[in-house]
């Protein structure tokens, strides 16, 4: 029986913060009794809103954080005890632009991290050449990183994370801040890695991303796993509901609150656009809801109204809209 790539049992993490001299301290529970298994070779997605605990899970698994209670085993090793051997077997990429040496070229960044991962020079050079092609940085790899776009930095991050050919790769919101094309390219890259046998543990709050590439997902909310399974399985958790969607002009918090109070409404999402707001309402009886919308909107203009089946994103919104257990 193969060892799980990631195995979390009753994992708990509490952060303690000091308010300042003589002003006491406070605690924030980031993770509460998290159980999770990721088998080898899987592309696993951990979804959740900001502050849900996704990055804390990744930091614990990559040995950067110690859990307050419970156990985290990565590639069979307890991360609390693990040292160099485990670090040599895993790779990680955190989203954002930090974490690179901007005064060095992309190539020199990779050479330096190759040194940190104790790659022999010949192997490092070969590997860098492969990765530069893989992430599409040919022609710019000898430029200083400070001249890179955000997308190029993110691709360099990915190359760095893959430099030592890790068995397990953690990606913490790798597409954050990327334009749609850059994000799509990165997703294809990550899917390709998984297809070639690398276990990938991805965190994101982009449902499209998770639905497009993940074999299995889990939703973490307020430090707890509230749903897990294949994207289709999680999506079906909202199958008893229908979705009413429309574009609205002149909608405000008061009207959103009135929508939420309509009978049967489970979740309301409002996404601001340039001229209109896209409003998504989940409820068991969309037809009845449509009839109630007119009086409820109180003069606000609603256009493009349609009723549709719930997507994974709808299921996610419903899940995280519910009070945590």
């Amino acid at each position: 029986m193969s060892v799980a790539a990631v195995e979390l049992r009753a994992l708990r993490k509490v952060y303690r913060h000091r308010h300042g001299w003589g002003r006491g301290s406070a605690e924030t529970v980031a993770l509460e009794s998290v159980d999770l298994d990721v088998p080898p070779g899987e592309l696993f997605g951990l979804l959740g809103p900001n502050g849900a605990g996704k990055t804390t899970v990744v930091k614990i698994c990559t040995t950067l954080l110690l859990p307050t209670a419970g156990t985290a085993r990565v590639l069979g090793e307890d991360v609390s005890q693990a040292g160099r051997q485990l670090r040599q077997r895993i790779g990680f990429v955190f989203g954002g632009e930090r974490g690179l040496y901007w005064r060095l070229s992309g190539y020199d960044n990779l050479r330096y991290f190759g040194d940190l991962y104790r790659l022999p020079p010949d192997r490092a050079r070969r590997r860098i050449d492969e990765l530069v092609q893989l992430v599409g940085l040919e022609g710019r790899i000898h430029d200083r990183v400070e001249r890179y776009s955000r997308g190029m930095k993110q691709r360099l991050h990915l190359a760095r994370g893959l430099l030592h050919d890790p068995e397990l790769l953690f990606l913490d919101e790798p597409t954050i801040g990327l334009d749609p094309v850059g994000a799509r390219d990165l997703r294809q890259l990550v899917r390709g890695l998984a297809d070639r046998g690398t276990t990938v543990f991805l965190t994101t709050h982009a449902m499209l991303e998770a639905e497009a590439i993940c074999d299995r997902i889990a939703v973490v909310h307020r430090g707890r796993i509230i749903a897990a399974g294949a994207p289709d399985v999680v999506r079906r958790q909202g199958a008893d509901l229908g979705v009413v969607e429309f574009e609205a002009v002149g909608i405000d918090d008061r009207l959103v609150q009135r929508l939420r109070q309509l009978p049967g409404v489970e979740a309301v999402q409002v996404v601001a656009g340039e001229l209109t707001h896209r409003v998504t309402v989940q409820c068991p009886d969309p037809a009845s809801l449509v009839l109630q919308l007119g009086p409820c909107l109180d003069g606000a203009l609603a256009v493009g109204l349609r009723v549709r089946e719930p997507t994974l994103e709808d299921a996610y919104i419903r899940l995280v809209a519910e009070p945590a257990p």
Binding site: T62, T63, G99, W102, F113, L116, Y117, R160
Partner: peptide, 18 residues
């Protein structure tokens, strides 16, 4: 300042040599 400390701490590099 560069945000590279976590990468260093999560690498297998010898702390003393670094």
């Amino acid at each position: 300042q560069f945000g590279t400390l976590p990468l260093l701490l999560a690498s297998p590099a010898s702390r003393l040599a670094t």
